[in-house]
Design a protein around this nucleic acid. Structure first.
Length: 638
RNA sequence: GCUGGCGUAGCUCAAUAGGUAGAGCAGCUGACUUGUAAUCAGCAGGUUGCGGGUUCAAUUCCUGUCGCCAGCUCCA
């Protein structure tokens, strides 16, 4: 057998017999490296440590320290779980697929005989641990297509058969560990004994191949880490995240509620929540005015015919609420664009008028499927900070840049890091190539200017134009779209919008549809979790609370309260005959930024003793000083 | 919408071989006049989400419906 030349990352070259495996190469370097190697990269492709090398190549060993390792580790743990499930339930369940995901993996099973429940997790985990301690070798085997189909048919694994039948390959690989075999591209850990720490977390339904027309499978989610310490850390992190869940905090801080009687997905804002919302809305109006937007307002319902003109009746009807009075049909608005179109059309527009930027805090209603509702993050009635920019094609570029800047300014103010995505022309779409090209380039160049990373989703744009989506994460790392910037070629067309150009001819304006926070509801939801309810002073519904030590200071406390309120501070008072510690505790749980303690000392000196919710005490100061102090801390934004 | 789980006092939760509900906190009343995360005592509080069924008897079993949770699908 001839020798092959294997180049290692440090540039050195090993001469090995053809057919040697990466494991053998590792052994020539050291046994510890060989034991630590869980896979290898051959000319950039991931393979098993035991897969034979046939020709000259570049080799890189993959240990748990490398980025790819965790994926492989979790994928192997998914096989381990499937193995355990097959051992326990045999032919009652069929395996399908089980990829690694962030922090762990899942595996989808089909069964019409057995329904998994979390109570079984212990049993499954126990069996998994047994297989780990058996330290079974995980072996790759390459089969011909027909052979593989025959094998999985004999095993009664219909889903695997379907997968192979759809594969356009002459051969497929399977991985065996003990008597368990699974169709898989690999690579995998060399043996089950390498798996150290995992925990099944939940079970939920999932459609076969993600299509709701297909069978519903049972998906078991699990988390897996290279060692127990990291697993524990991850579970603690999840626990911590649950504490800042906006649905929990919303109730505890008395911000909002939902009522079964009112209807699902309809937010009821309590005084503190409504205050928070009002502060954000005021902020938005100021910021939009600064940037040359005109504030407009449209009606809540518009005639059905108009929704036909816009195309919503045809494309969006299932999501809309309709009503009929005096034989006239109306649609409750799911979007704000219609009235904005009408404002544009209310007079003849010159190119000198453009760009026009119409801004509306527009409340819309959409009948979302019941299963998707989620606290404030997905509701049926919400208010968008919506604007439509109508401009000439030449102005598009600058307008988009302006919006991106706007989004960045605002996200910086709140301290959000956000992920950006750009979506390009889908197959089914309208508009000329030239329009799409111009708009897509405008979006890309604007994003390039920000120097921030972004992803491109080819063909994921709306049918009417390309878009940029900006996503924020909730406390459990689920992403939610907030800001979005969309170019639209349909509406100007459908509404026959025009402007008179310098040439005296009619031209079609371009429309940009954009939101900054997205929906006030969703943004507040994310905001609550981001700050864990400890809102910055400028948006805290209650900024300070006056707390007296005994009845003796009641009158003075009352006057302090009145002064603060008159100065525009959002202040409350707690003059109950309770111990100071008790009152502090309550204010603390309400996450009030400043507690103004007033005892005999403060009363005599004409001061207050502010205690910050962090537990830090400020030096006593006069009421005037405190007012200045608060105004100063808020001054950047209001 | 789909799959699975769940719905008990304002809140957090108890109560299974079916036998008409119990605790803490909050609330109310009283005492205590208190210095930075819970003072004590007493009182009151529920047609067990809602409708139907099985049963001598249903919080518990069945069914429909509304809502909530996890995920899928879809979207701000």
């Amino acid at each position: 057998m001839s020798d092959i030349r294997i180049e290692l990352p440090d540039g050195s070259v090993k001469e090995m017999a053809s057919g040697s495996a990466p494991y053998d190469v590792a052994m020539t370097i050291g046994e510890r490296l060989a034991q630590a190697s869980i896979a290898a990269k051959v000319d950039g492709d991931l393979v098993d440590v035991k897969s034979p090398l046939e020709k000259d190549c570049k080799l890189e060993l993959v240990t748990m320290k490398s980025d790819e390792a965790l994926d492989i580790y979790r994928h192997s743990t998914a096989h381990l779980m499937a193995h355990a499930v097959k051992d326990l339930y045999g032919d009652d369940v069929q395996v399908t697929i089980g990829p690694s995901i962030e922090n762990g993996f899942y595996y989808d099973f089909f069964s019409d005989k057995h329904t998994f429940s979390p109570e079984e997790f212990d049993t499954i985990e126990k069996r998994m641990k047994e297989i780990v301690s058996e330290n079974l070798p995980i072996e790759r085997e390459v089969l011909g297509r027909d052979e593989a189909i025959k094998l999985f048919k004999s095993m009664g694994e219909d889903y695997k058969v379907e997968l192979i039948e759809d594969l356009d390959e002459p051969t497929v690989s399977i991985y065996r560990q003990g008597d368990f075999a699974d169709l898989c591209r690999g690579p995998h850990l060399p043996s089950t004994g390498k798996i150290k720490a995992f925990k099944l977390t939940s079970v939920a339904g999932a459609y076969w191949r993600g299509d709701e027309k297909n069978a519903m499978l049972q998906r078991i989610y699990a988390t897996a880490f290279p060692d127990k310490k990291e697993l524990k850390k991850h579970l603690a992190r999840l626990e911590e995240a649950r504490k800042r869940d906006h649905r929990k905090l919303g109730k505890e801080l008395d911000l909002f509620s939902f009522s079964e009687e009112a209807g699902a997905g309809l937010v009821i804002w309590h005084p503190k929540g409504a205050m928070l919302r009002t502060l954000l809305e005021d902020f938005e109006r100021r910021e939009h005015q600064k940037r040359g937007y005109d504030i407009v307002m449209g009606p809540q319902i518009l005639k059905t015919d108009l929704w036909k003109t816009s195309g919503h009746y045809e494309n969006y009807r299932e999501n809309m609420y309709f009503t009929e009075v005096d034989e006239q049909g109306y649609g409750v608005k799911p979007m704000n664009c219609l009235a904005h179109m009408l404002i544009y059309k209310s007079q003849i527009r010159s190119y000198r008028d453009l760009p026009l930027r119409y801004f509306e805090l527009g409340t819309v209603h959409r009948h979302e499927k019941s299963g998707v509702l989620h606290g404030l993050l997905r509701v049926r009635g919400f208010t968008q900070d919506d604007a439509h920019i109508l401009c000439t094609p030449e102005q598009l570029d600058a307008e988009i840049k302006g919006v991106i800047d706007f989004v960045q300014d605002v996200m910086n103010i709140f301290g959000f890091e956000c992920g950006m995505e750009i979506s390009t022309r889908p197959e089914k779409s309208i508009g000329s190539d030239e329009d799409w090209d111009r708009a897509t380039k405008a979006l890309i160049s604007a994003l390039d200017d920000t120097k921030l990373p972004y992803e491109i989703n080819e063909g994921d744009g709306a049918f009417y134009g390309p878009k940029i989506d900006i996503k924020l994460k909730d406390c459990l790392d689920r992403e939610w779209q907030c800001a979005t910037i969309q170019c639209d070629f349909t509406l100007p067309e459908r509404f026959d919008l025009a402007y008179v150009g310098a040439d005296g001819e009619k031209h079609r304006p371009v429309m940009v549809h954009r939101v900054i926070l997205g929906s006030i509801e969703r943004f507040i939801g994310v905001l609550i979790e981001h700050f864990a309810g400890n809102f910055p002073l400028w948006i805290s519904p209650v900024q300070a609370i006056v707390v007296n030590v005994t009845d003796n200071q009641a009158e003075y406390s009352e006057s302090v309260f009145n002064q603060l309120r008159a100065a525009g501070i959002r202040v409350q008072k707690d003059l109950r005959n309770e111990k100071l510690g008790f009152k502090i505790r309550e204010a603390q749980m309400e996450k009030v930024p400043y507690m103004l303690v007033i005892g005999d000392k403060e009363m005599e000196d004409g001061t207050v003793a502010p205690r910050h919710r962090s537990g830090k005490n400020l030096d006593p100061m006069t009421v005037e000083q405190f007012i200045e102090f608060v105004k100063d801390e808020c001054s950047r934004y209001q």
